[in-house]
Simulated scan of single mutants.
Amino acid sequence: MAACISSLGHDQYSSKIKFDKLFNLSRYKRYFDFSSHAINYDNPENQSNKKLKFSHDDEFSSNKLPCQKMVVGSVYLPKDNPNKPLGEDAHFMYELYQTIGVADGVGGWALQGIDAGIYARELMKNSFIATYDEAMKDNPSVAQEMELNVEKDDILMVGTDGMLDNIFESEIEEIVERAIDQKLKAEELASQIGNIALYNSFDRFADTPYAKASEGRHKGGKIDDITVIVAYIQ
């Protein structure tokens, strides 16, 4: 299981969201625009306690808004498998806590009786909850943490092997540069990258990271679940 969580800051409020609906959308596109998506609060006037990192310490001032915000879009393209219409990837995006997460299910776990798709969805569901509920068995403070500085107009991208095995980083950079020129929205860029990765995955002769890593044992792309999350830093 490979998992990635990214956070840019959050309020100390939870929202009433139907988790089963959020984590069991079956196919294709799912996105939030953090600049406009609204969540109802019980006490909207008390929107304070902003933090600039994912951990729950008091290192930063509790009364200042983050310097940046994320505008996020995603695409999920599960591989065609009638027995697993939801695929084995999972991800979430949480506007209030400015947090995104992605998990790549490990299909080999089936040999041990584990459904990788269910595991990935539960991991992301509980990661989502843990962003605001410190009473969880585990919480974000026990995770391995790495911090990266971001600036306005940076673009953050995370994805699963379905993306990374089928499209080179240099290709992604070219797509992103064109997207900037075309002023594409985050979900449009995510969809573009996801669909190119999907196309390459079916191309038996494509030059792909997966083929390169196989050192001649494999040609073309790798058919897999594809998840792409794009976050514009504003």
Rank of each mutant, 00 (worst) to 15 (best):
T208D: 06
K185T: 05
I196R: 10
A206N: 11
R204S: 14
T160D: 04
A120W: 02
V150A: 03
G108L: 09
S201H: 05
R204W: 05
H91L: 09
E95R: 03
K69T: 08
Q68R: 02
D80R: 01
S127N: 12
L96H: 06
N200R: 08
N166W: 13
I172T: 02
G87F: 01
G117E: 05
K183D: 05
T99A: 13
F168Q: 06
V142F: 06
A206L: 15
N139R: 07
L123R: 04
P78K: 04
D161H: 03
F92T: 09
G113H: 04
C67L: 12
E173V: 14
N126G: 02
L156I: 10
V106Y: 06
Y119L: 13
A90S: 15
A90P: 01
P85A: 04
D138T: 14
I114D: 01
K84G: 04
K69I: 06
A103Q: 04
T208A: 09
A120V: 04
K84S: 15
D80F: 03
G87T: 01
F202K: 11
M93F: 04
A143N: 06
S74P: 03
Y76P: 00
M163K: 13
G73N: 12
V106N: 08
N166C: 10
E177T: 11
E174I: 06
R178A: 00
A186P: 07
L111E: 06
E122P: 00
I196M: 12
L65H: 08
L198Q: 03
G113N: 09
K137A: 11
A135G: 00
D207G: 00
S170N: 09
R121C: 02
S141F: 07
E187R: 13
G159N: 12
